[in-house]
Every structure is written in C-alpha cells, then in structure tokens.
C-alpha cells in the first residue's frame, strides 16, 4: 500500500503529551526527556480498559433506567420519575420537543455509544479492515457527543437547586441519577481509553 512508514518502524516514538519525538526506547519505563510523561507507542492496555469500562457502564446503565432519577413534589403530591417515565410524561403533557431532546440525550446517546464502542472494539480486535474511515468518523462522533449525555444529570442538579419552594414545589434527586451519571462518566472514560490508532495497526501490515 501507499504505506507511510510507522514511527515504530523508524525506531522513533512521539510523546503523547508534548509531542517530542525521540528514539524508541528498548524498555517499558521510558519517559519523555522534555516533559517527563511516560512514553509508549499505543495507549497502554487500551482495548482491555475500554472493554472493562464499557461493560461497567452498561451494567450501571440498567439501574440508571430502572430506578427513579427525580422526585417532584408539588403541593404534597410526590411523583417519582424514571428516565423513561419522565420522557413519556413530557410527551403526554404536551412537550414533545423536550421529550425528544431528553430521550436523545439519555437513551439514544448512551445506547449509540455502547454500540459504537462495542463495534469499534470488536472490529479492532479482529484486525478487521472493514470501513476503516467510517469507523474513525464514528469514533470522533462518539467523542463529541459524549459530553451531551450528561444532560439529564444537569437537569436534575439544576432543578434540585432551583426548585425549592418547600411545600409548594420541590425537586429531589433519587439514586437513579447517580447511576446515570456514573454510566456517562464511564462511557467517556471508555472512549478516552480507546486508542483509535489500533484500528489502523492491524490491516495496514499486508
């Protein structure tokens, strides 16, 4: 192929932090002579980490959906809502646009992340050269949308802080939101720990 030589082939290594290129060390415990960061060719244990975090995120995503995330109390009437029931309620009560936003942020985005990361992991592990460029785009998209899935947590946090009218109206966070937040954080870590260059390692060496 029009294979550009890899750094490894040239016996050089770049620092991930400051970008300094130096000779590839023989051992593992090399550090960047300029900034002192650890030097390694690829993110260490990237696939394993990503898998672990992704699985953990998925496990936590179950209670995040099953448990109620928020309790709204108005005039003594307490109402517990899970993510789905909140979406349904928004839809029923005449805010379909809001319902769509919340649904996207709390259901579509995390699910997409699980799917995308899972696909990326599987294909990368199998050294597949299927749709490499698209996979790269997918990865970048996951990185971008990752932050947006915190929307629910922000909503709950904001409402809890703002709506404090005692008996008349009050919003309390419930355990579900913690799990949801953990899920989002874990998926973000997962996508961070995934090293996209691994995708290109496999199929390129023909």
């Amino acid at each position: 192929m029009s294979a550009a030589p890899r750094a490894h082939e040239l016996g050089i290594i770049g620092c991930h932090v400051c970008g300094l290129v130096c000779r590839e060390p023989a051992g593992d415990d090399a550090a960047c002579p300029r900034c002192g960061a650890a030097l390694h060719r690829r993110k260490q244990g990237s696939l394993g980490r990503t898998w672990a975090l992704l699985i953990a995120a998925f496990i936590l995503y179950i209670p995040a959906n099953v448990l109620p995330i928020m309790r709204t109390m108005s005039l003594g009437d307490a109402d517990d809502n899970t993510i789905i029931s909140g979406v349904v309620e928004l839809w029923v009560k005449g805010s379909p646009s809001l319902a769509v936003i919340v649904f996207t942020a709390s259901i579509v985005v995390p699910m997409t992340k699980f799917l995308v990361l899972g696909t990326l992991l599987v294909t990368t592990q199998r050294d597949s050269d299927w749709a490499l460029r698209q996979r790269a785009k997918l990865y970048r998209a996951v990185e971008v949308i990752g932050y947006w899935s915190m929307l629910d947590v922000f909503v709950v946090a904001l409402l809890t802080a703002l709506v404090r009218f005692g008996f008349f109206s009050q919003v309390e966070p419930l355990p579900g939101v913690v799990f949801f937040g953990l899920t989002v954080i874990l998926t973000m870590f997962a996508s961070m720990s995934f090293d996209p260059r691994l995708m290109w390692d496999g199929p390129d060496h023909d």
């Binding site: 394993g48 672990a52 496990i59 936590l60 209670p63 592990q125």
Partner: peptide, 24 residues
C-alpha cells in the same frame, strides 16, 4: 499476544458495577 487480561485492575470497575447492580 493479546493481553486483555494483563491489566486486570481495570476489570475491578465492571466487577464493582456488577456488584452494585447485584446488590440493588
């Protein structure tokens, strides 16, 4: 070759999550 299990510490996270879920 492929050392998925080499960094076993990271696997504590899903185990922990599973434990939490199980406890729930």
């Amino acid at each position: 070759r492929k050392h998925r299990f080499s960094l076993s510490l990271i696997w504590l996270v899903p185990v922990l999550a599973a434990l939490v879920g199980l406890s729930l």
